[in-house]
């Protein structure tokens, strides 16, 4: 089930990087990311647990991970 709070957009090239998948899996405090067979995967049922800490954005190359606030349409990083 998709989240109602936020959505996460991952750059397709970055999403295939196993090292980034490992990093995001490690930093997210609420397990939104997991390393799958084909790279980075989102755990849809955890999306609404996001705390907007932005650790994923900080851990990824610039622009590779974006958070879309579904309640306002704003995207992080701005």
């Amino acid at each position: 089930m998709p989240g109602t709070f936020i959505d996460i957009v991952i750059d397709s090239t970055a999403g295939a990087d196993p090292e980034l998948a490992r990093k995001l899996t490690e930093v997210c405090p609420v397990d939104i990311f997991r390393a799958g067979e084909h790279g980075l995967e989102l755990v849809a049922e955890h999306l609404d647990e996001c705390v907007l800490c932005q650790l994923c954005i900080n851990a990824a190359p610039a622009g590779a991970v974006r958070i879309v606030k579904l309640y306002s349409g704003e995207t992080l990083p701005a």
Partner: peptide, 8 residues
């Protein structure tokens, strides 16, 4: 309170 409501 739902998290999206708090954030908003």
């Amino acid at each position: 309170i739902p998290r999206r409501d708090v954030a908003e």
